[in-house]
Amino acid sequence: MKPESLHALLTDRELGELSPEAGELLDAWLAEHPGAAPAPDVCRLHDTVRMVFARFPELARPRPPAWRHSPCRRGWVALAWAASVAALLAGTSWVGFRLGQTSARPAATLGQREPLPAAKSAPSSWASYALVPDPRGGLNVVRRSP
């Protein structure tokens, strides 16, 4: 067993976080390897950590999030935002340009072919009327001669 794994298991057992089954297996392994890891060292290490935290309570204080108020960091964040927006605009423009190119091509090829026959439909009743300019100004609706 690696020393790190052994120490991790001993730490868990010392802290009451090791299941009884795993504890029994660990004991059996330690019985076979008596000089592997002295358990008192683990206890001593835990005592040291407890004493350090009791003696130096400032260790429990989280470091303030200073970067939020740093003008340098704020500048970088603004620059990153601007760069992302520019990249997004450039990307969408390029995609739009490419789409425009590809959609224009079939129309051009269609123009070279024979024109499609105009759909024949019955003339509506509005076909007999037309808008003509009035000499006095404006437009007049006049009825076409049949």
Binding site: E17, H46, T48, V49, V52, F53, A60
Partner: peptide, 28 residues
């Protein structure tokens, strides 16, 4: 103790929090 304090102070905040909650407040 001083050496241990130095090592613990150099740990990331989250790791120190875990140690503090375990060894000071006895949380599982």
């Amino acid at each position: 103790l001083l050496m241990a304090r130095e090592v613990i102070a150099s740990l990331p905040t989250l790791q120190r929090e875990i140690l503090d909650l375990r060894f000071t407040h006895d949380l599982s």
